[in-house]
Amino acid sequence: MIEIDLTRAILAFMCGYFLTLSGSLSQIVTNNSLASPSTLGFDALAALSVIVSQGIIVYGGISYPLEFVSLAIFGFIFCGFIAISYTKGKTTLRYFSLDIKFLILTGLGFNLFVGAIFSIVQFLFMSLNWEFPSGLWFGNFRFFHEESVYIFGLTLSAILFYLFKNISQLRLLSLGEDIALGLGVNVVKAQRLALLVSLGLTGVVISFFGVFSFIGLIMPHMLRGFNFFNKSMRHELFIGPAVGGASLSIIDYFCFRFDFQGAEFPAGMVSSIVGALLLIVLLAKSQVKNFAKD
């Protein structure tokens, strides 16, 4: 008999859904199949908000759960990004207020920076005997609040509304920003919105469950290996994330079922290992020439 924690399975599904969609959107914006929330620094930003939240909880003596404080901090940063992008990001001859390559390099640099901060903060927390979210970098679904389902459900509704409203623009943008601009797409607005959505989805997942590396990078890439998804961006954006969600749910199920000396493997660890191996395979199949060309 298969034992399933339904709430946990649903949450894992929605996390996989959000991360896959986040990856697809970041790849559409950059027109680069190796872009992902990680390479754009979104993972690192969300992780930073978790670290800051833990500091606020411990130092400030706040009794709210970490994930909700983290979501609030991240939400504050997110609103800041919205404000900056709409006031500072006026239309320029570069389509977008930032060069995409610069964005990726900044994201990678920011990842390294947050990694260093994480190590320093971990050292300080341990020295002060404060509780530290050490499982942050390998997300897992072992502990969660039932209210999370409502937040994720609300996010899912918002995302589906966004997709239905913007699917045409996203399909045209996936042909390349040059073509999209020539066809009358407001490329600046479409790219900005897609990046904000990608950032928001990543932030929600990491605030609650930690980092699940490579899902946002690998899943969209793998989906496009199948004609059903490759032929139609609609399929990739609506149905593809469900495949990502199911994958993470299955990974988490096996992590739940098989423990090691009483300890459960974090699903994020498994996704990192599997994702890294798949990335090597994909790179070896010359997919990197798109990145090199760009």
Partner: peptide
């Protein structure tokens, strides 16, 4: 209508017929 300088390079590895279908 515009025809730019850079090579047409969609994100997905589309067939020509599929690219035309998107438009």
């Amino acid at each position: 209508a515009y025809v730019g300088q850079s090579r047409f390079h969609p994100l997905s590895d589309l067939y020509v017929s599929d690219a035309l279908k998107v438009i």
